[in-house]
Design a protein around this nucleic acid. Structure first.
Lengths: 297, 297
DNA sequence: ATTATTTATAGTTTTTACCTATAAATGTCA
DNA sequence: TGACATTTATAGGTAAAAACTATAAATAAT
């Protein structure tokens, strides 16, 4: 039996996704005529049209709708076959692309990268810093392999590995008076709480950890996309904020800021590693997770 | 991510099956150097050797063993994708290859083929007559689509459709004395029962239907591979045999043979259609089954 | 009618896949 | 041990497939 090529199936998927030959050709890095020809060949092979072509709009035929899920699954499994081949090598010695969210990256990477480099010198790590939702999109599309992010977060078709839990601290304007000063969640009612831009999960985690309404009067969303900026806003008296433990360096506390511990139950966020459920490199990912947890300081 | 081609996976499977590059090349209808190159490319892509090559013997590497099942499944699913495309067409209008066992074919086909031709004129039917075990091998290998055979029979990974049950009759030497003469299974103890060659399921079905031991003294296995030959043996006085109902034409009874009905419970065999569980054309196969059952006379 | 947008077709070039011929490796047998 | 048989690897050439550029054709929007 004559089989289609995987490339044809990829083109088929791309057109189904974009509903346009030209745009599909772009995402496949070929020209539109090439893609047109390839798809015609596939349709000839199957003996059925996969798309109804109007000059200005394309839509999936019945047969096309029927075949798309299987085509997807065949491509995914082929990708997994390639990934599987690395499974018998020593773990963490090949390519690996890791996504990290911006509220973790600057605090963890300075410790993590040298440690990884010395323990796994032949690991070829590719880093990508972005907000959680875009990391998960990239993960699903197979553009990255694992994401280091804050949980809980709904991650369909992904496997989560919880690494550790870390408390939030309250950061207020003013110099540190007493290292032992504690504060309760109720005290926040009288504070202006500064938050990161929408899209940053830290924002949501702080809101839910403190049971604050997203629209309550005493919180301010900033254009700030980094915690560093946020801290400077606090220093300059614009309000207070909650900082995750890893963002606080006890040896180098910034001037003009008071850090206060919360009384129990402390608000916390969890740090975890996430990967595709069907990725065959689970063992390698777990090892990475353990390594990150071990070397986080 | 760079993917292997389906062709490379097929070559990989062929070598894993034959454990020889040369023989694999033959089954793939290419030359050995081409296959060698293709496999080297695949190994380069995966970054792992799939086989340990001695000059005189080849064996799967650990990675190879690991990847073979997935490679198989990817190829199978690709085949199913092609089959699936026919599902939206009018059923029984495309190619279909049907296996039939020798104890059914000559009695059923004369009725079936003209009927199929007139009801489904554009059906392109490919027939293959062979014994059950080889039909099932061909079915599993995807060389044929459905098999019309006698049940019960263990058919792993296949779906069975029971069509009808038919009784066996006793065929004895001598002219027909009375059309209503009946016989019991116990009467067989005094008969020499002639059987078809080993491999024919009719043989096993008769033995089990009559609860005869395969090695009992009063049965004879003949080199005969067709029921016609067997009937002639009976005519010439070599013994008796059991004939399935479809082998008996009441209008044209051969000379020198007595056909006798068994008393209840009659020994019977079942006729059924069998196909691969994962074949997407179930609906089409069921339709064919119903058609065969309807037009069996 | 003119323009812009999109897919299809034609002709050319590049890449891939395959073939033949032959080398290299090694087990077999005189 | 040396000649032979068997099997995979390599080299070089050829044919087929897949890509590109240029352009046509169709039609929706202006």
């Amino acid at each position: 039996m004559r089989l289609p090529t995987l490339r044809q199936l990829q083109y088929f998927m791309a057109v189904a996704d974009t509903l346009s030959f030209s745009r599909a050709a772009e995402t496949c890095h070929i020209t539109q005529p090439s893609l047109s020809l390839a798809l015609n060949e596939l349709e000839d092979l199957l003996g059925e049209k996969l798309f109804h072509r109007g000059t200005r709009k394309i839509e999936l035929s019945e047969v096309g709708k029927d075949l798309i899920p299987l085509a997807r699954s065949i491509i995914e499994q082929s990708e997994n076959l390639v990934r599987m081949a690395t499974r018998h090598r020593a773990p963490l010695t090949a390519q690996l692309s890791l996504g990290i969210i911006p509220t973790i990256a600057p605090y963890l990477l300075p410790h993590l990268l040298p440690a990884l480099q010395s323990s796994y010198p032949s690991l070829d790590l590719q880093l990508k810093e972005d907000i959680t939702s875009r990391q998960l999109d990239a993960l699903k599309a197979g553009q990255i392999d694992v994401v280091l992010m804050a949980l809980p977060f709904d991650t369909p078709q992904m496997e989560q590995m919880m690494l550790w839990k870390e408390p939030f601290f309250l950061a207020r304007t003013g110099d540190q008076k007493s290292a032992t000063a504690e504060v309760t969640l109720d005290d926040l009612k009288n504070e202006t709480i500064l938050l990161l831009d929408d899209g940053h999960c830290l924002r949501d985690h702080i809101l839910s950890a403190c049971r604050l309404a997203a629209s309550s009067a005493n919180r301010k969303t900033l254009g700030a996309t980094s915690l560093q900026t946020l801290i400077q806003m606090v220093q300059n008296g614009y309000g207070s904020t909650l900082l995750p433990a890893m963002a606080i360096d006890p040896h180098q506390m910034p001037k003009g800021i008071t850090i206060q511990r919360f009384t129990n139950p402390q608000p916390t966020r969890q740090i975890g590693l996430v990967w595709r459920k069907d990725d065959p490199r689970v063992a390698e990912f777990r090892l990475l997770g353990e390594f990150i947890a071990k070397t986080r300081h």
